[in-house]
């Protein structure tokens, strides 16, 4: 074990892992975080707390992580390179480790153009792969990016994201290989609706033996409405929503669509479990966190493993 992360323990034990996501509020209200954390408790092994997702100002990821941890969960701090340079990122890494957070997910971040402050100056001093390497060197070499040494290293389980559906397709596995070489311990993927294409990507991953070097958690998300499905298909870059998904939702009565969306999510989880090399799922139900427990239960993934102290 590299860290005290619950997610690492579950993955090392060989159990199929479940993570989810918690979006902090656009306010200073800690109750919103507590409420969402209580929903997720007991049905996930760890959960991401987003870091200004879609470049909208929200409560800082590390702060919401601390609040949620009071509810007894293992949080994953998300850290993007959009708003902070290498100095600020390394300071935050020391800070979160000192506060007892065990996991970090390293991201480049959604471009500021998409958020509520599109006039902001983007930082992008380093990219996500370089951030993974920096955290790895801090943890395993006790070195800052500049090469100077530190007395106490941050013991963090290091995550990265990967999108098997973005272009250029021939480069996507190479990009995962780079993240592994940089030091990623686990990877969470973009939401999978096109299971066939994901399986094709996983085959390329296995051909390179990458699934043995990094734990791959496939991203899934329930769909609330046909409009949401169409929006993801046409408006969200890097999303692959096949027509069959939309057709399946169109076949049920309007009031049944969100239930069908949940069933579809469970079906996809069951298909993903059959793909060799998939170590778990990452359920993204942004602003719909209350359906996560029923998805996990319907997928037969309860109870979650617990470990004695």
């Amino acid at each position: 074990m590299k860290t005290k992360s619950n997610l690492e323990r579950v993955l090392e034990s060989g159990r199929f892992a479940v993570t989810s996501e918690l979006g902090p509020p656009q306010s200073a209200d800690p109750q919103v975080v507590r409420k969402k954390a209580r929903i997720l408790k007991g049905c996930v092994d760890a959960f991401n707390v987003t870091d200004g997702q879609t470049a909208v100002v929200r409560m800082a990821s590390w702060a919401a992580c601390l609040i949620a941890r009071e509810e007894g969960l293992d949080p994953i701090v998300q850290m993007t390179c959009r708003d902070r340079n290498r100095i600020a990122l390394q300071m935050d890494i020391l800070g979160i480790a000192a506060l007892g957070i065990n996991n970090v997910l390293c991201l480049t971040g959604d471009h500021q153009k998409f958020g509520n402050h599109p006039m902001a100056k983007g930082v992008y001093d380093i990219d996500s792969i370089q951030l993974v390497k920096i955290v790895k060197d801090m943890r395993d070499e006790r070195k800052f990016q500049c090469g100077e040494e530190m007395a106490v290293e941050p013991r963090l389980f290091i995550g990265a994201a990967e999108n098997p559906f973005a272009d250029p397709f021939q480069f996507r596995v190479l990009r995962l290989a780079k993240k592994v070489a940089a030091g990623a311990d686990f990877v969470q993927t973009q939401i999978v609706y096109n299971v066939d294409k994901f399986a094709e990507w996983m085959k390329m991953v296995r051909d390179r033996g990458l699934h043995e070097k990094v734990k791959i958690l496939a991203g899934v998300a329930p769909i609330k409405s046909i409009g949401a499905a169409k929006y993801m298909k046409t408006k969200v870059p890097g999303m692959d929503v096949p027509d069959s998904v939309i057709e399946r939702l169109q076949k049920v009565p309007r009031e049944q669509v969100s239930k069908e969306g949940i069933r579809l999510c469970v079906d996809i989880i069951n298909q993903l479990r059959q793909i060799p090399g998939v170590a778990g799922v990452h359920i993204m139900a942004i602003e719909w966190e209350e359906v996560v427990p029923q998805i996990v239960e319907a997928a037969g993934l309860l109870p979650r493993p617990t470990f004695g102290a």
Binding site: E162, A166, D167, F171, K178
Partner: peptide, 19 residues
Amino acid sequence: SKHLLNGPCGGSQGGKCEV
């Protein structure tokens, strides 16, 4: 748009930048 040095981000689609 993000000055990336290690390959495209997840927003590259059909040869275009998501921005």
